[in-house]
Design a protein around this nucleic acid. Structure first.
Lengths: 224, 224
DNA sequence: GGGTGTGAAAGCCTTCACAGCA
DNA sequence: TGCTGTGAAGGCTTTCACACCC
């Protein structure tokens, strides 16, 4: 089913930022960060080059954030970085819980890329007695029954689901009941969540199958 | 830059299958597999329910594969499965090389989900002497210098890049030079590849940032 | 001159709604 | 009657092209 949600909420002075644009903002931000401090301004052309899109798209996208460019010059790198970080909510931390500490969950727990970017892994949870109590870095794996407490204690904002597929929906339901409104799902299954919850998914098997489709039929971007 | 590719190749009797449809086929296939053998037919309504989309979309998507439904009845599950598997290239194996055996690469190497679904991990490659020579399952990590030989020997079809960002473009270039035409990129960087190469990416930091955007602004699907 | 900001056009994708067949 | 297959409509997204400002 999955009925059409009542659309549009994210606004700024009346203009909603399109989903497609939101998905590119992190790429632009990364490109800006790579420029370094000896580059005071960038043109849409340069940003486009390093983000792998075209210049018109960059200008449109940035115009949704507001008009931070200067005609004839380009965009002030530092200023644009600051606005982008603010738009992406990167002025604060968003504590993460990883549920399901198998191969993938453990790798995510050890992966440094989260913490230093504003998404500290604040808790690990698993249902198996073999795993509960183990430590990863300075975190002890807690039991799935305590999920609600964990979410409250650690002020969890984002739930990462790395359980087997059959457990994923129940975990999502518990996360949501505990107040989590953002979920990243690695389990190979479709999750149903209420409209006020943001859901993103990463499905490795699906990615492989998309690739082998194009391997057979000849590529057409295949890009996200 | 990234100029518009000459579009459209994947055809079937003249009708190209849209990218958006291709990305959903794996989900439909998974839904079909979950139905089990005591369900001979499904309606678009049922398939839609379990795939998390709406029924009109299912019908349109399936119509691109050809007309395998029966009016008044629905779709023959087994027949549809077979056609879908064929379309997705799942009637053969596509050997995979994982390049970069850090946290994530190692987790992917241990992850069982690939091999049993037609994407056997046939080789592991890394640039660090500390890692080369280690074994994961029955695979020994080989040195990055041997990438071209590895690709040839193992008939690699898909390259998975799990290196640090700075190494990723060079790895992609080598994979492509060695004949690989499908790449799944986990490195947090934009890759440039020629149009005949299919590229998909998984970027955890980007996913988190998209989620925190919607956490701040109120969700609007956020879905892929 | 150089490069942004943005209406307008074009292209995809989704949804509707219903003809048509089992 | 029930459900598929599909033109047509509608909505997003991308791209164009140029007015406008530094």
């Amino acid at each position: 089913m999955n009925e059409p949600y009542p659309r549009a909420v994210a606004e700024r002075g009346g203009k909603r930022i399109p989903d497609a644009t939101v998905a590119r903002l992190p790429i632009y931000l990364r490109s800006l960060l790579e420029l370094g401090p000896q580059t005071p301004t960038v043109s849409s052309e340069q940003l486009a080059e390093s983000a792998g899109v075209n210049a018109a798209k960059v200008r449109k996208d940035l115009s949704y954030l507001g008009s931070y460019g200067t005609r004839g010059v380009g965009y002030d790198v530092e200023y644009l970085q600051a606005h982008m970080r603010r738009a992406l909510g990167m002025t604060q931390d968003w504590p993460v819980v990883i549920v399901g500490i198998g191969n993938l969950g453990a790798a995510l727990a050890n992966y440094g890329g989260f913490g230093n970017r504003g998404y500290p892994v604040a808790a690990l949870v698993d249902a198996s007695p073999d795993v509960v109590g183990r430590t990863f870095g300075d975190l002890v794996v807690r039991h799935a029954d305590e999920l609600a407490e964990v979410v409250a204690e650690e002020h969890i904002a984002i739930g990462v689901i790395a359980t087997p597929a059959p457990a994923a929906q129940a975990v999502a339901d518990e996360l949501i009941a505990a107040g989590v409104r953002s979920i990243l799902n690695f389990a190979p299954t479709v999750l149903t969540v209420p409209p006020e919850v943001s859901l993103r998914k990463v499905d490795l098997a699906v990615e492989m199958q998309i690739l082998s489709f194009y391997q057979q039929h000849g590529p057409t971007s295949a890009a996200e």
